[in-house]
Design a protein around this nucleic acid. Structure first.
Lengths: 136, 136
DNA sequence: TTTAAATGATACTAATATAGTATCAATAAG
DNA sequence: CTTATTGATACTATATTAGTATCATTTAAA
């Protein structure tokens, strides 16, 4: 079972590097080339990932020579949950679970409630882990 | 993101029906046909799922006319986590996460520890939800 | 002893999701 | 003008998930 897909993984790694470059070198704008030269990631694939983060207003992007990506939201305000959501949709451990006749979708179903509670706590916990923290 | 696959889902539904048949009708052995006639599940697919549960010593199987499957472990001792493990392997929310250069697998990595903690709690919680409980 | 109803085992196909490549257009610095 | 960048999109490859088909084996019961 893969909870975190490669998109999410690469996005996290890239942003961790960006956060470090910002903190230690005051380097704000980073190109895809900068990132893939350090990490061994497929360039075009990563580019599309950063594009998506820009589209979602988490990063800014700059075209042309000397261009690249920078944080639009600061790294201490971007959570693990945020990143997962961008690439994998809402975090929901209850999906595909007992949708048939066995357990119709009644609100009073206690088991469903329990699993939902587990799921919500996971989201809450992952909301408290930030890119800034990960880059330390 | 799909946390629970269809195998797991079908296995749960089947065992919930079995637990009910046991409790209300004292019916111990149930055939795949019994299950698919109530729920709308693909028969051969479900059979393979129950076969696997038998192989894992969760169910017993009986061949021949009048045969079918019964619980080898009683339903109040089979947990949601057990079933997920059979069809999807160990529950591990940290897989595929930061395996590259950014965060080598050092034990002192705090973020990894945090995610591991979340993951372990999910397993623990899912270990406390039983088939018996689900069938109530 | 024959038949029918069941699981055991295995091979195959289909659909979907994930991962990655290729390519060209647009932009902006120098 | 050239070069280094992102934007956009179409394509291919691989892996996972879901499901089908088929035949062998077993056992109860007619």
């Amino acid at each position: 079972m893969r909870f975190i897909t490669r998109d999410t993984d690469y996005a996290l790694r890239a942003m961790i590097l960006m956060a470090r470059a910002l903190r230690y070198k005051d380097k704000k704008v980073i190109s895809v080339e900068d990132i893939v030269s350090g990490e061994k990631l497929p360039k075009v694939f990563l580019r599309r990932i950063l594009q998506k983060l820009a589209e979602k207003k988490i990063l800014s992007s700059y075209k042309g020579k000397g261009g690249g990506f920078s944080f639009l939201i600061s790294p201490e305000k971007i959570s693990l949950a945020d990143v997962i959501k961008v690439f994998q949709g809402e975090i929901d451990l209850t999906n595909c679970f007992l949708k048939g006749k066995v357990c119709p979708n009644r609100p009073e179903c206690r088991v469903r409630e329990k699993i939902k509670a587990i799921s919500l706590r996971v989201v809450k916990d992952m909301d408290n882990i930030t890119i800034e923290e990960m880059s330390e």
